[in-house]
């Protein structure tokens, strides 16, 4: 079941530097929400607050609250939060020493699952959801790093899906991919939103316009504007949003 992810007054610091200034944002299930904004405005930092990955960075910390459905993520363990709120990164990052199969199975094995047929089942389902199954079903024992960049990124999506998250965070998932592969990932996102809550960070305004139902515009660590993608792009309320979406800066 997909859940709402709600950030309440989230701020983040690297050492003494405050890079996120009290962001409050609710990400609805079964929609795609995009975050746009110029480089360094805190998009990745915000995303890492949601799944508590930020606390793995030395010297980084956050304040504020994040809720997954009714539950405060700080009432769960960091590991549980990260399983429930899956993440895909700007660069495909399959585990280099593992096969395709082991990459997808990794999360399950780390949880201590031993039931082989159960794992195989889950791997197949995840690869199907990531629209990769047909391409790799005959070579599951191949090193994952031999896949193309786009396939590696799909594999990373499958790897995230395997531990049964309800939310998927995508931090510029297509930024290193070709235009064709980018379209493929976008189609995949369209498809996934029927089952998951999806947040995508993107530099690419067209991409946001294509895939996102809602869009949030970040600037210098603040969320300037949030609304239906249509409205944000055509009738922005804030001058800064207008400047950004019309390409006047950033």
């Amino acid at each position: 079941m997909a859940d709402v992810v709600a950030a309440h007054d989230v701020s983040a610091y690297y050492g003494q530097t405050k890079v996120l200034r009290g962001v409050t944002l609710e990400i609805r299930p079964n929609e795609v929400t995009a975050i746009i904004g110029p480089p360094g405005c805190g998009k990745s930092t915000f995303v890492r607050c949601l799944n508590r990955l930020l606390e793995a960075t030395p010297d980084a910390r956050m304040t504020g609250d994040v809720f997954l459905g009714e539950q405060n993520v700080y009432d769960m363990s960091a590991e549980e939060t990260r399983r429930k709120i899956g993440m895909v990164f700007h660069r495909p990052n399959p585990f280099p020493t593992m096969t395709i199969f082991s990459n997808v199975a990794a999360g399950l094995r780390l949880q201590g699952l031993r039931n082989q047929s159960g794992i195989a089942d889950r791997v197949e389902r995840s690869l199907r959801s990531a629209m990769l199954w047909d391409e790799v079903k005959d070579r599951l024992q191949m090193p994952a790093v031999l896949l193309s960049a786009a396939q590696q990124q799909q594999l990373c999506i499958a790897r995230a899906l395997a531990v049964d998250p309800s939310v998927l965070l995508l931090d510029e998932p297509a930024s290193t991919l070709s235009p064709m592969a980018t379209l493929q990932i976008e189609e995949l996102i369209e498809d996934l939103k029927t089952h998951y809550t999806i947040l995508i960070v993107t530099h690419n305004l067209q991409q946001a316009a294509r895939v996102a139902d809602k869009t949030a515009f970040f600037l210098s660590g603040e969320m300037v504007e949030y609304g239906k993608t249509m409205h944000l792009f055509t009738t922005p309320k804030d001058k800064r949003t207008e400047d950004y979406v019309t390409g006047r800066f950033g």
Binding site: G86, F95, L110, R159, A160
Partner: peptide, 27 residues
């Protein structure tokens, strides 16, 4: 080992110890 690999392991629920023994040392 690139940090994006570390984050990949953490993002599927690996503990720090699992990250070390399951991902970092093997690679």
């Amino acid at each position: 080992v690139p940090s994006v690999i570390r984050e990949g392991a953490l993002s599927i629920g690996a503990t720090k110890r699992q990250l070390i023994f399951y991902v970092l040392l093997p690679s």
